[in-house]
Nucleic acid binder design. Structure first.
Lengths: 218, 218
DNA sequence: TATCATATTTAGGCAAGGCTAAAAAAATAA
DNA sequence: TTATTTTTTTAGCCTTGCCTAAATATGATA
């Protein structure tokens, strides 16, 4: 059984490894965890001894298979709980992160398997992120950024890149959520801004918005 | 915000205060928490400084109003989660305690209020114990021990006094659960044993069983 | 009341996870 | 290549919550 702190480190390393695709530096982890580099060194050494990461002094850290499995499981729990909070308890998708952050550390395989079932074995969480299965594998979608679409192309919103409260609230105000169909009515070349159609409303969005929304085309 | 350890102490003191109706001794707490008396002393002193218990050296500990409120809230969460686990995730009532023990420490008023709602604002948990409302008040039922019933009286099972796995499994085997109607067909004077009717089955139970089952008569 | 057993507290330590300050390695610039 | 900056690690300390051993209060008994 791993401690809460250990699980959080593994999770952070898991995400960083994907973002940076490669070894993860001590500072990067410290940044993500909002802690000091010296604390990180202590912890990755401990995780190293436990065989959950491969750590070499001054070189960086990577998850071992075992560490990866544990991290994926924590993420699985986090995302399943998010689905529960949104689908069953009717939370808004921008309110669930902190609560899921706590729920993800409840230990019980039985619980999570029953929860998964209760929710209908979802493949994606309310932000469009894939939910790993019990072996740590997740569905890969061919998702693009909205900004990559051309005039008259359309796609279904499947997730966000940036997930700050402000951004999610913006989307909410515009009635954009997972599953929302979006059609590009126009696109300005010089600044990347767009006019899009959402339901019956059409409106203007900046390049910054378009670069932070994932859509599935095909 | 209180730490996990603090919440567990408050909860234990809350229960003990009711069981012993009065001040709670350091040893009693240590016993309940499966920890050493010296650790308890440390903690009650700390809780005392925080104003959550009133503690006097060598005299014992009681919850303050504030401490009581916090304890009741933890218990509320525990019992609501138990309802969720049994009603929604179809756990058996004898499997949910340890999981609820973890879930009860998730901090979010909003979460618990939505959960309460989702579950239909239940008044009792799957073991028949009352669920405190958000102000810490709980419904009082006039429940008796089965052993207090006389021949030909009947009652509805509303809870258990002892809740060990063995006992709950015994009840399960006999098809007794919350809501089960039980009629006393016979009662032996000299040892308190009974013959009872449950559904269409009648069988013998010892005094020990009868003294650990709560029924509601009226 | 004096004595003895029991309950409780105090003192001093330990492990987990943090932090700061200082040392050492690596990367970058001159 | 040498000097300088940045990154990382080490050393030493802090808090929380636990523990053991020793000291002290309380309460029961003679």
């Amino acid at each position: 059984m791993n401690s809460l702190a250990e699980e959080n480190y593994l999770k952070a390393i898991y995400h960083l490894q994907r973002e940076l695709n490669g070894d993860v530096s001590t500072n990067a982890i410290a940044d993500r965890m909002e802690t000091k580099p010296s604390s990180v060194t202590d912890m990755v050494q401990k995780l190293g001894e436990k065989g959950l990461v491969s750590y070499k002094r001054y070189k960086g850290t990577t998850l071992t298979d075992q560490g990866q499995k544990i991290a994926a499981n924590v993420i699985r729990k986090h995302r399943l709980w998010e689905v529960f909070l949104v689908e069953k308890l009717k939370f808004h998708w921008d309110q669930v992160h902190d609560i899921a952050e706590q729920l993800e550390h409840v230990h019980s395989e039985e619980l999570i398997s029953r929860l998964d079932n209760f929710l209908g074995n979802p493949d994606f969480d309310p932000h469009g992120d894939p939910i790993p299965d019990k072996h740590g594998k997740m569905k890969r979608t061919e998702k693009k950024l909205l900004s990559e679409l051309q005039k008259n192309q359309q796609g279904v919103c499947v997730g966000v890149k940036e997930s700050s409260g402000e951004f999610l609230q913006y989307l909410d105000k515009k009635q954009i959520s997972i599953g929302t169909k979006i059609r590009v009515l126009g696109k300005e070349f010089f600044d990347g801004s767009m006019v899009i159609l959402v339901g019956k409303d059409q409106f203007f969005i900046s390049k910054k918005i378009a670069e932070n929304l994932y859509v599935q085309t095909s």
